[in-house]
Amino acid sequence: ATYTYNKKFGFAAIFAHLACGWMVNAGLYPGNTSFHGPETIAFVNQSLGLADRMTGETKLLVMDCGLEDQEMLANLHDRPNTDFILKHNRRRESSTKWLELAKEKGVLIREDAKKGFRVYRGSTYRRLKDREEEIRLAFDVKETYKEKGQLLFLPKVEIFSVWTSLRDFSDKEVLHLYRMRGTSEQFHAEFKTEMDMERLPSGKFKVNKAFLRMGMLAHNMLKVISQDMVMERALGLKKATRRRIKTVMNNVIFMSWRLISHARTLVMQLGCSKEWHIWFGRLFQRLKPA
């Protein structure tokens, strides 16, 4: 373990989720690892390869700006059967030039004279280094020219932009698809906090890496149970499109039961209501062959 970006002694982890939170891949690296390099590209390609084995459909890869660089963009651009949305890191790009670009190539989608701001939305194309291809860069640019009723000498400029290979989607749809990525942060929270995977058990890197992989398998097993819980309406739970890992563990994994030996047969007695007993019996019979 080494010191991480927030000056803590530990490791750096990276995860890949598919659809409703299925964990496709997990990687563990020393704490001072930079995710701009061949290791990250190898991890992304490995994760996409695993996803290809799960479904033959075209996949949309959505990633944070911490993974953005020229090599990553070129790698994703050349990969078949995969579209991508990658958050753009402005680094030292001028806010003034971005505002000029937004006014030139974007459209005004919102203006509030009372609050003193305008929002422009549009797309531009940029060429990768040493390559002929141009990649679409969709953006929202907010210009604030008034605060608390006072005009500003220089406007404040807020920029939200993403790289994408999607060409048949509008700027609004592309930006909305990236903003939906916030749900993946909940998947990270479930894995780290609710499964208590935030603190790894050993000081040895290989042991922790193996422990992380076992945690990934356990996470996906709990997701199987959570999908069954979503489909079942008689359990008395609030209507939802997914169940958190904590809910699954509290209602199923921590369910009280007793194992009884009777007539040369092992019988499991559950301490739950009739509805939960029926649901658990169906789940047990379905998963038993596996």
Rank of each mutant, 00 (worst) to 15 (best):
R213P: 00
A138G: 00
L60A: 10
K223S: 02
M195Y: 04
E104H: 14
M255E: 07
R136N: 11
N75L: 00
F139G: 02
R126H: 14
S170T: 15
I278C: 06
G116V: 03
E104S: 14
L99Q: 12
L18T: 04
V248Q: 06
V248S: 09
I260D: 03
E194R: 10
T55F: 10
D112Y: 13
E71T: 07
G37S: 07
Y125H: 11
K103N: 04
G49K: 11
F280M: 15
M221L: 15
V141W: 08
L86I: 14
H188R: 10
E173L: 11
R181Y: 01
N220R: 09
F280D: 04
V141T: 08
L76A: 07
K209A: 08
C20Y: 09
D168A: 15
E133C: 06
F43N: 05
L137H: 09
H262L: 03
C65Q: 13
L108V: 06
I159D: 06
A74L: 12
F284Y: 11
L152G: 12
E93S: 13
I14P: 00
M231S: 11
I159K: 05
L18N: 03
L151E: 12
A13K: 12
L151H: 07
V207K: 11
F43T: 06
M23S: 03
F205M: 12
L212C: 08
R136S: 11
E68P: 00
E173M: 13
N32E: 06
H17I: 03
Y178W: 13
F35L: 15
F211E: 01
L266A: 13
E185D: 10
Q46F: 04
Y120T: 07
V252S: 08
G49D: 14
W22F: 11
A102K: 02
A210Y: 07
T183F: 02
M229Q: 08
D228R: 12
S256W: 01
V107C: 01
G281L: 15
S256C: 02
F284I: 05
D52G: 10
E100I: 07
L217C: 09
I260P: 00
Q269H: 15
N25G: 00
R121G: 03
F280I: 15
L154W: 09
R286L: 10
F35T: 04
V207A: 13
R118I: 02
F117I: 02
F11V: 03
S226W: 02
L212Q: 07
S94F: 09
K105Y: 15
P30R: 09
R244A: 09
I225W: 08
P155W: 01
F11D: 03
L18A: 12
Y145S: 10
R110I: 00
L61Y: 13
R90N: 05
G56F: 04
E147A: 05
R244V: 00
G49M: 07
A210L: 11
H77W: 14
A26D: 00
M180N: 14
T124D: 08
R286Y: 10
K274G: 09
I14S: 06
S273E: 12
L222F: 05
S94L: 09
V224M: 13
R79E: 02
K156N: 15
L152R: 14
M180I: 04
Q70I: 08
G236V: 08
F11A: 01
Y120G: 07
F284P: 01
R179Y: 02
Q269A: 14
R258A: 04
A290H: 08
K239L: 07
A1K: 01
T55S: 15
E190D: 10
F84I: 07
P201M: 03
A290R: 03
T55I: 11
T4Q: 07
L259S: 10
M231G: 12
S165G: 12
